[in-house]
C-alpha cells in the first residue's frame, strides 16, 4: 500500500461497522493470497465483492475501503493479491500465467470455508485490476452479477477488428485466445457494467500503454478509452438486439489514485449502487 497514512483506513476489527479484516496466505505454487473483509453478520443472499488491485498491488487498501459498506449489506470483500514477483501481466488474464485459474482456485477454497457461495459475484477492478476484471468477465460472464471497471488503462474491445488482447480477433498460433474471449460475448453484453474514471484521468502518464493502433482505436488517455469502450459495448449489444446495461460514471476532480477516487469521487457509492436493471436501459454515455 503506497501513499496512504495507516490511520486513514478502518482498523482490522471494526465493531462499530461490524467487520474484521483478515490476511489469508497463498496456498501452493499458483495460489493467491488475499485480504478479506468479513462482516460479522453475513448474508448468504448477497453477492461477494471481489476487488482486483492495480499494479500498485493495493489489495489491503481496497478491502479496507469497501469493508464497512459491504458489512452493512452482509457481503464479504475478497481482494486477491497478484504479487509482483509471480504475476507480472495478470491484467491480461491468460498471457504468461493463468490468472483466471488462480482466482477460480481461490474462490473454490473460500467456498469450502463458507465465505462465498455458488451465486455470481460482483467483480470490481481498478486500473490494471479493471483490465483483469473486464477480461475475466468476458471469459466467465456467468460468474458475474455486476462488473465495475474503474480507470482501466485500456480495454479489450468487443469486436474482431483487432487481435486479442486489444480485440477478440485470433492471435497467430494454435493457442488463439481472442475467439475464446469472444465466445460468450452475447452473455457478457447482457451483464450490467459500470465504467468509472476520474475526470482528471485525461492525460497519458508513464504507465499508460501507448501504441499507434491502440491510441487510434481507443484514444490516448484513460478517460477517452473508457468512453470508447462503453460506447463499443453499447453498440455491440444493440447490434445483437440486446439491452445495453452499461453506464459510464466520471468521478469529478479525480485523477488516477484509487484513494482519491474513494475520498473525493464517491467510488464506493458507485461500487455499491444497484446495477442498471434490465428494463431501465438509459445508458449514460458521456459526450
Amino acid at each position: 500500500m503506497k501513499n496512504l497514512p495507516k490511520q486513514s483506513l478502518p482498523p482490522a476489527h471494526d465493531t462499530l461497522h461490524g467487520f474484521h479484516i483478515v490476511w489469508r496466505r497463498a496456498h501452493g505454487r499458483n495460489g493467491l493470497a488475499c485480504w478479506l473483509a468479513i462482516p460479522h453478520q453475513r448474508r448468504a443472499d448477497t453477492p461477494a465483492l471481489v476487488a482486483i488491485h492495480g499494479i500498485q498491488r493495493g489489495a489491503e487498501e481496497m478491502a479496507r475501503s469497501f469493508a464497512a459498506r459491504a458489512a452493512a449489506e452482509g457481503r464479504v470483500v475478497i481482494a486477491p493479491v497478484f504479487d509482483e514477483a509471480g504475476w507480472t501481466g495478470y491484467q491480461r488474464v491468460v498471457q504468461r500465467r493463468r490468472a483466471d485459474l488462480a482466482l477460480i482456485a481461490l474462490l473454490d477454497e473460500l467456498a469450502l470455508e463458507g465465505l462465498v457461495g455458488k451465486r455470481p459475484f460482483t467483480l470490481f477492478g481498478f486500473s490494471g485490476g479493471a483490465q483483469f476484471a473486464h477480461r475475466f468477465a468476458m471469459l466467465y460472464p456467468h460468474r458475474i452479477d455486476h462488473l465495475i471497471a474503474a480507470a482501466a488503462g485500456w480495454y479489450t474491445l468487443p469486436d474482431r477488428h483487432s487481435v486479442f488482447p486489444y480485440g477478440l480477433g485470433a492471435e497467430s498460433g494454435r493457442q488463439a485466445w481472442g475467439p475464446k474471449f469472444g465466445a460468450a460475448l452475447d452473455r457478457f453484453l447482457q451483464l450490467p457494467v459500470s465504467v468509472l474514471v476520474g475526470t482528471l484521468d485525461n492525460l497519458p502518464d508513464e504507465t499508460t500503454r501507448s501504441t499507434p493502433e491502440l491510441d487510434r482505436r481507443q484514444g490516448r488517455d484513460r478517460l477517452t478509452r473508457a468512453r470508447t469502450w462503453t460506447r463499443a459495448l453499447t453498440q455491440a449489444a444493440r447490434a445483437r438486439g440486446l439491452e445495453a446495461r452499461f453506464r459510464l460514471h466520471t468521478l469529478a476532480d479525480c485523477g488516477h489514485r484509487f484513494i482519491d477516487c474513494v475520498r473525493d469521487g464517491g467510488l464506493v457509492d458507485h461500487v455499491f449502487a444497484p446495477p442498471v436493471p434490465l428494463d431501465a436501459c438509459t445508458t449514460a454515455l458521456a459526450a
Binding site: V94, L101, L139, G241
Partner: peptide, 22 residues
C-alpha cells in the same frame, strides 16, 4: 479440462439460442 476453453465451447453452442431469444 480448462475452464476457459470449456466455457467458450459451451458459449459457442448456446449462442444461437441466445440470439434467437434476443
Amino acid at each position: 479440462l480448462d475452464p476457459a476453453h470449456a466455457s467458450a465451447l459451451l458459449a459457442g453452442l448456446r449462442a444461437p439460442a441466445l440470439k434467437a431469444a434476443a
